[in-house]
Design a protein around this nucleic acid. Structure first.
Lengths: 156, 156
DNA sequence: CACGATAGACAACCAGGTTCACTATTACGG
DNA sequence: CCGTAATAGTGAACCTGGTTGTCTATCGTG
């Protein structure tokens, strides 16, 4: 026996839905030449965007410290997904930009996410899926980044 | 500008929905005398259940190594949510059981989750919420534990 | 009764986060 | 025009939660 109220299932299903999508994405990404991509990388690179950014800015966007953002950038750099260059107008800053490989990873992700969404549409119907998205939009903050992934898991 | 296909929003919304619920839960749990509870703890304690379990078993249920389960149990023990006792029938085993405080935390969580779900029902309608849950059930694995929280984030 | 399987614990390591402290550079006000 | 405050990046020390590998104690069985 377990304590099992109706309300307990909702967060679990939301998380499982998220996890299923992310797992499938990365299985497919691995097949398409990006075996080292991690969920975090996708979020960070989406936040970096095609115009580039800096460590401080990325940290603010993702809701983590600039040091943590710096570590993430280092990792992405090691994987060849981004590169850094000094800003000529402000030599303190280092602009982080996606490499072609990074752009490719993002393009692949976009395509795969579309395919996964289409697969869901087949299972539950396009109409219901649109309703599901609309409903989630109503109960979640509009700000799509600031996942604060560490926050809900991390240090007190 | 960013790479922003329709499919990209879905996982984000699912995760944000999850996060909103979990954040609200823990804000409320803190107010109700459980300020040290973490998301992980709730999952683990739900998996431990009122009948108790062992480290190996808990690890299997949660989809992590027995060592990781052991560490989690240690933490929960330090917080006073569980206690361990040797199994008289098999002195290798140590049965982990919820303390009254642990049960209280789970009971509080159950009540709060119900309240949060009711709040969602007000926003999007009870009917739509039921549909949302039903649709998610169709696209997620039936096995509600095995979140593999580390898995989608962790080491390759 | 010996030997394989199991439960738990310990160590070393990794990833990703935090804070504190420091340097280099830029921006600004007296 | 210069001294000072603010900002960008980095490094170090630490925390949490995970991993694998190894070791011991106990159980169960041929």
């Amino acid at each position: 026996m377990s304590i099992d109220p109706p309300g307990f299932e909702l967060p679990l299903r939301l998380f499982l839905g998220f996890r299923v999508l992310i797992d499938d994405l990365h299985a497919e990404l691995a097949r398409q030449g990006h075996p080292h991509a991690r969920p975090m990388h996708g979020f960070a690179m989406q936040a970096i965007g095609v115009n580039g950014t800096t460590a401080v800015e990325l940290g603010r966007t993702l809701g983590v410290s600039k040091q943590a953002a710096g570590k993430t950038i280092e990792t992405l750099e090691r994987l060849g997904y981004v590169e850094r260059a000094r800003d000529p107008h402000d030599t303190r800053r280092k602009i982080v930009r996606l490499t072609p490989s990074g752009v490719d990873m993002l393009v692949c992700s976009a395509r795969i996410f579309d395919e996964l969404r289409a697969r869901w549409a087949v299972v539950i119907g396009e109409e219901r899926l649109r309703e599901l998205e609309a409903d989630l939009r109503k109960v979640t903050p509009p700000d799509v980044f600031r996942l604060d992934v560490p926050g809900w898991f991390g240090t007190s």
